[in-house]
Design a protein around this nucleic acid. Structure first.
Lengths: 202, 202
DNA sequence: TCTCTTAATGACTCGTAGGTCAGTAAGTAT
DNA sequence: ATACTTACTGACCTACGAGTCATTAAGAGA
């Protein structure tokens, strides 16, 4: 009559483990995260974890990938398919997206990459290919389109899409380091968009 | 006739050790840095290192402090004492200072803090008090002075000095992660100053 | 119900790295 | 010269945590 000590759930295990690993890595960082604790939080033995992930490093990579994969392409698609004017799009969907980043798992991933990136160059490449490169490219093409349409002047912003993201980056770092100290990240990001638009509008 | 195996240099040792430690932490990050290697590079035994620094963590804190202390107050003083117009100052000394940051040890310190800050809150406080708070305060007062003089309009920039530093932050992170990929950080920072000035000039 | 496959366990190993301390020799005072 | 202090050494200790594997039991199939 005793309940079974565990259930077999081959399919779900990897996801359950990466979810738990995300939590632990987010709290502790890579080096201080304990594989035992990941296993514990996933409700699984350490041995089983090692069935699904060959090493701690593999687990780490799987976590980064799973976070990244889940939310990248939505915005990129929106950029290509919108029928808003360039200014409306920047003040609407793009602004909204940028606002969300500092509070999202992406911020955690950025922290982990900054801390560990040096020793995981292939991870950095992966992140570059799937997030940064795509994102910057989309913004760049988007601004370029505004120029073609005569909405925008041709300025340095076209080849420096990083300008748009700069306050997002600062907000991410701010939250990581200075969570206690207040900073109106929404207003920061919005003002940047304001400034850029004032600067490039034809 | 043999040379002495070592010289006694009580006064210089701590500095020599923190210099070596800075190098190793910069290359490896805190967790992967080995105390043995720090000692080796400092040309000192591990035992002696532990005479001057009680733990690895104390050593880490000493490194951060020594980097921070060396170069903070110069700019702040310049802000208070300049007789340039606000615009001239922003395009001159301030721009020059911001350009230097991404390639300086400050960038390394930021990386270490992002990675390890969670477990060293007192270090973050220290950095806040001695660098961030002072720096932001100076920029804020400086912009405020421009407003008083009638050079600038009163905009969100006055209470969001972070806007000025946003591209510096992005440049720092960019260098940490994407050193290979080119980014004209000078132009990025300069364009931001351009944009801000266009935005706030009366 | 009995057998068989394999998902799952957890006690174990073993390298590693932070920290210690008994001993040594550089430099100083007499 | 000799005695003395203490900066300095480096072999050692020990805790800890990544990774292993012999064993167990869930649950499917006959």
């Amino acid at each position: 009559m005793a309940e079974p000590r565990y259930q077999r759930r081959k399919e779900q295990r990897p996801q359950e483990i990466t979810d738990a690993a995300y939590e632990v890595f987010a709290e502790k960082g890579y080096a201080s995260a304990r594989v035992d604790e990941v296993a514990r939080r996933a409700g699984v033995s350490k041995g089983l974890l090692y069935v699904y992930f060959r090493t701690k490093e593999e687990l780490f990579k799987a976590v980064i990938r799973s976070v990244v994969i889940r939310r990248v392409d939505a915005l990129l698609l929106a950029v290509e398919e919108t029928d808003l004017s360039s200014e409306e799009f920047m003040r609407g969907p793009l602004l909204e997206f940028m606002r969300r980043v500092p509070g999202s798992p992406v911020a955690i991933v950025i922290r982990l990459l900054i801390a560990e990136g040096q020793r995981h160059p292939d991870l950095v490449d992966y992140y570059w290919d799937n997030v940064v490169s795509k994102g910057l490219g989309a913004i760049s093409r988007f601004v370029g389109r505004g120029v073609e349409r005569g909405e925008f002047r041709d300025t340095a912003v076209t080849e420096l899409p990083q300008l748009v993201l700069a306050p997002v980056m600062l907000s991410v770092v701010w939250r990581i380091l200075f969570a206690k100290r207040e900073l109106d990240t929404d207003k920061l990001i919005e003002t940047q968009i304001d400034m850029i638009l004032a600067y490039i509008k034809a």
